[in-house]
Lab assay of single mutants.
Amino acid sequence: MGFKLLSKLLVYLTASIMAIASPLAFSVDSSGEYPTVSEIPVGEVRLYQIADGVWSHIATQSFDGAVYPSNGLIVRDGDELLLIDTAWGAKNTAALLAEIEKQIGLPVTRAVSTHFHDDRVGGVDVLRAAGVATYASPSTRRLAEVEGNEIPTHSLEGLSSSGDAVRFGPVELFYPGAAHSTDNLIVYVPSASVLYGGCAIYELSRTSAGNVADADLAEWPTSIERIQQHYPEAQFVIPGHGLPGGLDLLKHTTNVVKAHTNRSVVE
């Protein structure tokens, strides 16, 4: 069995187990497998329904001669939608809004960016022009300005110390501490036991640490421990890039980060 097929099978099995364990909360999309990078042309966006009122959005972007996937989250909030992270750029984010209108038909009224990198804030200006209120932590807003990236308009308070959590509509926002970046936030959907790890969490097929220019490698494993301790009931975990899975993604990420750190020390 090929690795790609095995990865998709694991996603399907995880979703099936969740649907059985929580039949009222989960209505997993039966329309197909989780979209992969090879299936999404740059400039297009796919939506994948995880649970009743919960979707991931998947886009792709060219970077350094390669094409990478990027995940975000959409959560229903009454007759409105909360968006977590842009679709990595203005063109993708405009396509995301169009796809949401086509498939869901509810307005996106608020959006949260989970850290300051372009795959999370690139497209904020498109959201703002569409009347979406954009939010991020003060740290993310400051770092985005320093980096020359787009800056969300509103500040999220109460997320300055490791372990801080605040309720934001249908989700809980959690600051686990520094990891992929010093400002990275985690998003949890309690009604569906869905954990969105953003770039602080890796997919299972990833074996290298990737972009760690703004990471705190020493603190990252401790931050992941905080996530595990705060959300032990999480059933569906979405990484910032690639295929979702279960809580095993947290341990896998820790292993990859520690291996990278150990290699760096040896070198």
Rank of each mutant, 00 (worst) to 15 (best):
M1N: 05
G2P: 12
G2E: 15
G2L: 13
G2S: 13
F3M: 14
F3A: 08
F3E: 08
K4P: 05
K4Q: 07
K4H: 04
L5C: 15
L6Q: 09
L9E: 15
L9I: 14
L10T: 15
V11L: 08
V11H: 15
Y12L: 09
L13C: 14
L13G: 07
A15S: 13
A15T: 11
S16T: 14
I17L: 12
M18K: 15
M18E: 15
M18G: 13
M18R: 11
A19F: 15
A19Q: 15
A19K: 15
I20K: 15
A21Y: 14
S22G: 11
S22A: 12
P23Y: 10
P23Q: 10
P23W: 12
P23S: 10
P23E: 09
L24V: 13
L24N: 14
A25E: 14
V28P: 10
V28T: 11
V28I: 14
D29K: 10
S30G: 15
S30M: 15
S31Y: 11
S31P: 11
G32C: 06
E33L: 09
Y34H: 09
Y34R: 08
Y34C: 07
T36M: 10
V37M: 14
S38W: 11
S38L: 10
E39L: 11
I40G: 06
I40R: 06
I40S: 07
I40F: 08
I40T: 11
P41T: 10
P41V: 09
E44D: 10
V45L: 04
L47D: 02
L47Q: 05
Y48W: 15
Y48K: 11
Y48A: 13
Q49R: 14
I50L: 09
D52G: 10
D52F: 08
D52H: 09
D52M: 08
W55Q: 01
W55G: 02
H57R: 03
H57L: 03
I58V: 15
A59N: 10
T60H: 09
Q61H: 09
D64C: 05
A66C: 06
A66Q: 15
V67Y: 15
Y68F: 15
Y68G: 05
S70M: 05
S70V: 03
N71A: 05
N71R: 02
G72V: 02
G72R: 03
L73G: 04
L73K: 02
I74Y: 05
I74L: 09
R76G: 07
D77K: 03
D77G: 08
G78E: 11
D79A: 10
E80D: 08
E80P: 02
L81C: 04
L81I: 12
L81M: 07
L82P: 04
L83P: 00
T86R: 01
A87D: 00
G89T: 05
G89H: 00
A90N: 09
A90M: 09
K91D: 15
K91M: 14
K91E: 15
K91F: 07
N92Y: 05
T93S: 04
A94C: 03
A94T: 14
A95V: 09
A95W: 03
L96N: 00
L97M: 08
A98D: 10
A98Y: 15
E101Y: 11
G105S: 11
G105H: 15
L106G: 04
L106P: 05
L106T: 07
L106C: 06
P107V: 11
P107M: 07
P107K: 14
V108C: 00
V108A: 06
R110M: 08
R110E: 05
R110A: 13
A111K: 00
A111R: 03
H115L: 02
H115R: 01
H115Q: 02
H117I: 00
D118K: 07
D119N: 05
R120P: 02
V121I: 09
G122R: 08
G122V: 07
G123M: 03
D125I: 05
D125E: 13
V126N: 05
R128E: 14
A129V: 09
A130G: 09
G131Q: 07
G131P: 05
G131I: 06
A133H: 13
T134Q: 00
A136E: 03
A136K: 04
A136G: 10
S137V: 05
S139W: 11
T140I: 04
T140Y: 05
T140N: 05
R142D: 12
L143Y: 09
L143H: 07
A144I: 06
E145K: 14
E145F: 14
V146G: 14
G148V: 04
N149D: 08
E150L: 04
E150F: 02
E150V: 04
I151Y: 04
P152T: 02
P152D: 00
P152E: 00
T153E: 15
H154G: 08
H154M: 12
S155R: 11
E157T: 11
E157K: 11
G158K: 07
G158Q: 08
G158R: 07
G158P: 05
L159V: 10
L159M: 06
L159R: 02
L159F: 07
S160I: 12
S160Y: 10
S161N: 12
S162F: 12
G163I: 04
G163L: 04
A165P: 08
A165Y: 14
V166Q: 11
V166S: 07
R167G: 11
R167V: 11
F168L: 08
G169L: 04
P170D: 03
V171Y: 00
E172D: 07
E172I: 06
F174T: 01
F174N: 01
F174S: 04
Y175K: 01
Y175T: 01
G177F: 03
A179W: 03
H180W: 00
H180L: 05
H180R: 04
S181A: 07
T182S: 13
D183R: 01
D183F: 01
L185A: 02
L185V: 10
I186G: 02
I186A: 08
V187A: 13
Y188W: 14
V189M: 03
S191R: 11
S191I: 09
A192E: 10
S193D: 14
S193H: 13
V194G: 01
L195C: 01
L195Q: 00
L195E: 00
Y196K: 03
Y196M: 07
G198Q: 03
G198T: 06
C199L: 03
C199V: 01
A200D: 02
I201F: 08
I201E: 03
Y202V: 15
Y202I: 15
E203V: 06
L204Y: 09
L204D: 09
R206Y: 12
R206S: 15
R206M: 15
R206L: 15
S208W: 08
A209R: 10
G210H: 04
G210D: 05
V212D: 07
V212W: 06
A213K: 13
A215I: 05
A215K: 07
D216V: 09
A218C: 06
E219K: 08
E219Q: 10
E219G: 08
E219P: 04
E219W: 05
T222E: 12
S223E: 02
S223N: 01
E225R: 13
E225V: 11
E225W: 11
R226W: 07
I227F: 06
Q228I: 11
Q228M: 14
Q228R: 11
Q229F: 12
Q229T: 10
Q229M: 11
H230S: 12
Y231S: 02
P232F: 09
P232K: 13
E233T: 12
E233S: 13
E233A: 13
A234K: 04
A234P: 08
A234Y: 03
F236C: 09
V237T: 04
P239Y: 01
G240S: 04
H241G: 01
G242I: 02
G242L: 04
G242W: 05
P244Q: 04
P244S: 05
P244N: 02
G245Y: 03
G245M: 03
G246A: 08
L247Y: 15
D248I: 07
L249R: 02
H252S: 04
H252N: 08
T254K: 14
T254G: 13
T254F: 15
N255D: 13
N255I: 11
V256F: 06
K258F: 08
K258A: 11
A259K: 13
A259M: 11
A259V: 10
A259R: 13
T261F: 10
N262S: 13
N262A: 12
R263S: 13
S264C: 04
V265M: 10
V266P: 14
